[in-house]
């Protein structure tokens, strides 16, 4: 287990404003002992990269209910460009099954579809956070 709580950014990109799901997940991750940086919807890709960097998060969770998951491959490229490859990315919400592969190929670790148990989401995010910490560039030597 990690010694300090995982830091997770829960956010939404694009024009979709349905934020009930992201709030629900934010609260569930809080209850699982994580530190959740929560933002309102309508962030753009560059916002998310800046947030991930400035807040030094281990995992980024993107909630998408209205096709904004298609912006995620672009987010993956932008994160890499900002040297944030160690940060784990998960997507939750409405993602058509035949588009899931597109996200996984782009580097997304996991897509959570409707009905995913909160315990499972928390467990996976926590595991991803632990991996991210191991892979993060070491500041001291």
């Amino acid at each position: 287990m990690m010694q300090t709580p995982p830091r997770v950014l829960v956010t939404k990109i694009g024009l979709d404003g349905h934020d009930r799901g992201s709030r629900l997940v934010a609260a569930a991750l809080r209850d699982a002992g994580m530190e959740v940086i929560y933002t309102p919807p309508w962030q753009d890709v560059e916002d998310v990269v800046r947030l991930a960097q400035d807040e030094d998060v281990d995992v980024v969770g993107i909630s998408s209910l209205a096709t904004d998951h298609l912006l995620v491959p672009g987010l993956m490229v932008a994160l890499k460009r900002a040297h944030l490859d160690h940060v784990g990315v998960v997507v939750g919400g409405i993602v058509p099954h035949d588009e899931e592969a597109l996200l996984i190929e782009a580097g997304v670790s996991r897509v959570f579809h409707p009905g995913s148990p909160m315990e499972e989401i928390a467990r996976e995010v926590s595991q991803l956070a632990a991996n991210a910490r191991q892979q993060a560039p070491e500041l001291l030597d």
Binding site: P5, A26, A27, L29, R30, D31, A32, G33, M34, E35, V36, I37, Y38, T39, P40, E46, D47, R50, L51
Partner: peptide, 18 residues
């Protein structure tokens, strides 16, 4: 109880993000 937290203050300061 869990030690977790929802950190939402910066929501109000979003316009300075860039």
């Amino acid at each position: 109880f869990s030690g977790g937290a929802v950190l939402g203050d910066r929501c109000r300061m979003n316009r300075h993000q860039a």
